[in-house]
Design a protein around this nucleic acid. Structure first.
Length: 648
RNA sequence: GCCGCCAUAGCUCAGUCGGUAGAGCGGCUGAUUUGUAAUCAGCAGGUCGGGAGUUCGAUCCUCCCUGGCGGCUCCA
């Protein structure tokens, strides 16, 4: 059986005249038909199907069911279409198959079924949707003709450009990998893993105890139902002069103003420091790679991402979507023994590139160009992999705490790995300390056997992965990475993939969305102190105090390393306070005659009551808030009066 | 990538039933020297996102493009 699926906005057909002498006569209502929001299934019954007709029909319905589950069409049209095969079954057999399909479809598919008549020349009009699943073809065979691998096989990738739709896109080569299509067929089961390592099917879990967790589960499995608005972080990122769109670039490529760039840099430095302390060896690898490199070609087929393509002379390169490949190439050439493992390579990839579909891009949540701290850890065996995984899991937990953003944890398992490693599952459940969403795959479709993610929920109940750690069982061998074990034999290591923070830009998205949630509840938005672009602002009450304020600012700066500025504009104090609050400055000092005369400093504290502090007490307070986090200068004029505005 | 909506001053937006435009904020100048969320006045800012079409005439109507948002799809 050959199948062609079209997810259609609209289909109408009309039988014109019989194509076969055996064609059954048609009632007028059978001759014409139309359907909106339909999954149109064109089918050709083939000679090889005849011995196993019921089985082939059953498998066909399974395929239709599978595709229907993914595209969520409202009805199915069964459309006999002989032109899909060179090797057709005899018409009477094909007709029989059609009857069987029609008979079995309603119960199996649970949506209205429309059937086009068999054995007639038909005129039809079709408007196909353009999403990647809208057009698929499949081939289904029975036992007799299947040989060693019976069942369903995927024949080709979704095609671009359909009858009646726009002309084919200028698709760069390999835009859609085999892994992408593969992923679309993936079926999984969902559970909750309790801190006591009990695995509860989601259908039996009481999500009412934890609404955030329930919202996360619903989002992961069903997507959001809420009427969406522009995500609030977009307004905030612009109002706070952090990040903005850049219309002169491609979609999903942003400009970063000084304050935003500072936050980004601090996140990067903190991440790199965390990883350095954890033993990561920092490297740098190229951002573009040769499509034709043999190792790479195979790898691309396993990685579900769309790439930017760069044409140079007569060669095509793609821009990296992660640091994996570059680090594998380094690992490949390294000389390692058992004692050298775990071996960790780390790169802060600014940038990684993924040509996400335009409709998927949304503010800082999903970009086409992003900064991804990427660490790969070679380990000798599963014992080491599990130990290292748990260590990195804890690094992720600490990262999220530093960010101050709540999250939900998800972990994905291949069934075999889950069953064979109860110790690991238990340790992970305990380390997480809260219920954790589990996706269980019966078979391994990807390169990893397990993978964890931390997902903050945004204002609209959408989840986005930040931290992630994975155990890769495939690429050590694929890339010929080897170490010499203590028995003198050369072996392929397992590889852990980790991004402790996830994409840096997405961290800012998570912070801003979380603050927007707070603001909606009437609380003040704020950055963690270490990420505040301006940490302390000094407000002179009037002109004569500008000089002493500048002096105080530079003293705070030299004593604490904090970023301090002075609002020396010709404005009233009320206005200066208002502006400082609107910029989320955590500590605001008003400085006038009293302070100049030696009185204690009046400190307006964003997240608490005002303080009255001496200068040394202030230094201590600032130092306490800063902790051991990275410091960096603001990189803007200290005096607000001399500071340009990047966005009105 | 598909469907829908949107694009007017640096920003947020109003407006023109088709006759080339306004406000607030911000900026500049001047006055003001201020004690915990907006000091006052004056001035300067616009090919009404880009291209094509219809029209005597298009910011307004139509089509295409670009960018944004929402939904779908997607999301190691």
């Amino acid at each position: 059986m050959k199948l062609l699926f079209i997810h259609a906005d609209r289909l109408s057909f009309e039988a014109r005249k019989p194509a076969l002498r055996s064609a059954p006569p048609l009632a007028p209502e059978e001759a014409k038909g139309e359907a909106n929001e339909a999954l149109v299934v064109f089918y050709s019954v083939e000679a090889g199907d005849v011995p196993d007709l019921p089985l082939v029909v059953d498998r066909t319905l399974a395929e239709v069911e599978n595709v229907l589950g993914q595209v969520k069409a409202e009805r199915v049209v069964l459309y006999p279409y002989a032109h899909l095969s060179q090797n057709l079954a005899p018409p009477n057999e094909a007709q029989k198959a059609g009857e069987l399909l029609k008979a079995g479809a309603p119960a199996r598919l649970k949506v209205p079924i429309v059937s086009a008549p068999f054995g007639y020349y038909k005129a039809f009009e079709l408007k196909a949707k353009g999403h990647p699943l809208a057009e698929l073809s499949r081939s289904v065979v029975g036992v007799a003709s299947a040989g060693a691998a019976p069942g369903v096989s995927l024949v080709n990738k979704p095609s671009k450009g359909a009858p009646g739709s726009a002309p084919p896109a200028k698709a760069p080569p390999m835009q859609e990998s085999e892994a992408l299509t593969r992923e679309k067929k993936l079926v999984s089961q969902w559970f909750v893993l309790t801190p006591e390592a009990k695995l509860v099917p989601v259908t039996e879990y009481d999500f009412t105890k934890d609404p955030e967790f329930g919202a996360f589960y619903r989002y992961e499995t069903q997507g959001t139902r809420q009427a969406g608005e522009e995500p609030p972080h977009v307004r905030l990122m612009r109002e706070l002069e952090l990040v903005d769109y850049e219309p002169a670039s491609d979609a999903g490529n942003f400009r970063w103003y000084p304050k935003g760039q500072l936050i980004k840099r601090l996140l990067q430095e903190q991440c790199s420091e965390v990883i350095r302390r954890a033993g990561g060896m920092r490297v740098e690898t190229p951002i573009m790679y040769d499509y034709e490199h043999p190792a790479l070609k195979r790898y691309l087929d396993r990685f579900p991402a769309r790439q930017y393509v760069l044409r140079s002379e007569d060669k095509d390169y793609f821009l990296r979507f992660a640091a994996c490949f570059g680090q594998y190439m380094i690992f490949h050439d390294m000389v390692m023994g058992r004692k050298d493992l775990p071996a960790r390579l780390y790169e802060l990839t600014h940038y990684s590139f993924r040509r996400e579909q335009t409709g998927e891009l949304s503010g800082l949540r999903r970009l086409r160009t992003f900064t991804m701290p990427d660490m790969h850890t070679l380990v000798a065996d599963y014992a080491q992999a599990k130990h290292e995984f748990l260590e990195q899991f804890q690094l992720c937990q600490r990262w999220m705490a530093d960010l101050g953003v709540p999250y939900n944890a998800a972990v994905r398992f291949v069934r075999g790995f889950y069953d064979e490693n109860p110790d690991f599952v238990q340790a992970l459940a305990k380390a997480n300390g809260r219920p954790m969403l589990v996706e269980m795959w019966e078979d391994r479709f990807f390169y990893f056997v397990t993978k964890m993610e931390f997902h903050p929920l945004d204002t609209q109940g959408r989840a986005a992965a930040l931290s992630t750690v994975q155990i890769d069982v495939e690429n050590g061998e694929r890339f010929g990475i080897q170490y010499t074990d203590s028995d003198g034999k050369r072996k392929h290591p397992l590889i852990l993939h980790a991004s402790i923070p996830g994409a840096i830009e997405r961290n800012l998205y998570a912070i801003l969305e979380n603050e927007a949630k707070k603001m909606a509840k009437g609380q003040k938005g704020a950055f963690p102190f270490w990420l505040s672009p301006v940490q302390v602002r000094v407000l002179p009450v009037s002109d004569p105090f500008v000089e002493p304020c500048l002096k105080l600012a530079s003293e705070i700066e030299s004593r604490t390393g904090a970023r301090v500025d002075v609002d020396d504009r010709d404005e009233g104090i009320g206005r200066k306070i208002r502006d400082a609050e609107r910029e989320w400055v955590p500590l605001i000092l008003v400085y006038g005659e009293k302070e100049a005369g030696g009185a204690k400093l009046q400190v307006r504290v964003r997240d608490g009551p005002a303080l009255s502090l001496s200068a040394p007490e202030l230094f201590e307070e600032v130092g306490r808030r800063q902790g051991d986090k990275p410091r960096a200068p603001l990189g803007l004029p200290t005096r607000l009066n001399l500071r340009p505005i990047f966005r009105g």
